[in-house]
């Protein structure tokens, strides 16, 4: 087993979730690295789309913007944002990766603001962008994020992007498409899914070097625990080699 950092582990975990022959809507950073790694390992037929209009590019390097020219470099189509979002709305995009300053037990995300005053926020963030759309329409939404008790919060100051909303069947009842929602939360400490009925976040896998207690201590709400919690598999030599040499040689995401 070789040495690796937690970001490398998270990117490898995320990449493994992406099934060959499926489609993923990604942003910049770790999600893009995960999709590229999947393409170069077990999922050569993974279709990547970017919200600004890039479809199935042969990414020469990681984009800085989800609308820069790398996002449609040697792509099969350079189209519009409505076209990409309509494709999501029709049910053709399987996965997406999102993130935020806060996440609650149902996988709802806040990337808009801290504080309650809408027109005078304590801290203002970018807002939804395409995140709410991807989360509303893509079949399986995943999050790659560092884990701490401030981020994993009982209640988001602002729900920018829908997870399972209030849990149970609240999401479909409110009008969002049926059968889609948060799927995996990948952190530096663990991998979580969502319990089928309550839609509450549940630990399914613990990363090497951490315990269930560590994960719970760094979470602002009570996590459910799967009947059988496994240890997250280490990145393989091949995954690390491809990630470092081909996906992110500039070490923009994975660091040095």
């Amino acid at each position: 087993m070789s040495d690796y950092n937690t970001m490398e582990l998270m990117v490898c975990c995320a990449a493994r979730e992406l099934v060959d022959g499926s489609s993923v809507g990604v942003g910049t950073g770790a999600p893009c690295a995960a999709a590229m790694l999947a393409q170069k390992t077990h999922a050569p037929n993974l279709m990547i789309v970017f919200e600004a209009g890039g479809v199935a590019p042969l990414l020469p390097e990681m984009p800085i913007s989800v609308g820069d020219s790398r996002t449609f470099f040697k792509g099969v189509m350079a189209t519009s944002m409505p076209e990409i979002m309509e494709t999501c709305s029709r049910g053709l995009i399987d996965y997406t990766f999102l993130g935020g300053a806060q996440i609650d037990m149902y996988g709802n995300l806040n990337s808009t603001q801290l504080g309650q005053d809408h027109n005078r926020p304590k801290t203002r963030f970018p807002g939804s962008g395409g995140a709410n759309d991807f989360a509303s329409f893509c079949w399986r939404m995943m999050v790659i994020t560092p884990q701490d008790a401030r981020r994993f919060t009982e209640k988001c100051d602002f729900i920018t992007t829908p997870g399972w909303l209030q849990g149970g069947d609240s999401r479909a009842k409110l009008g969002l498409p049926k059968g889609c929602g948060p799927y995996r939360i990948i952190t530096n400490m663990a991998v979580m899914d969502f319990e089928e009925k309550s839609k509450r976040m549940r630990i399914i896998s613990i990363n090497p070097g951490y315990s269930v207690k560590d994960v719970q201590d760094n979470c602002g709400f009570e996590l459910l625990k799967a009947d059988k919690i496994i240890e997250t598999a280490h990145p393989t030599e091949e995954e690390l080699r491809i990630l470092r040499d081909q996906v992110d040689p500039g070490r923009i995401v994975i660091g040095r």
Binding site: S89, N132, D133, S136, F158, I159, T160, T161, L176, P177
Partner: peptide, 17 residues
């Protein structure tokens, strides 16, 4: 439009269901 319902992005917007 089929998104944003149930979120604060909807609440602090100006759409209607």
């Amino acid at each position: 439009f089929r998104g944003t319902m149930g979120t604060d992005t909807f609440k602090w917007g100006a759409g209607k269901t």
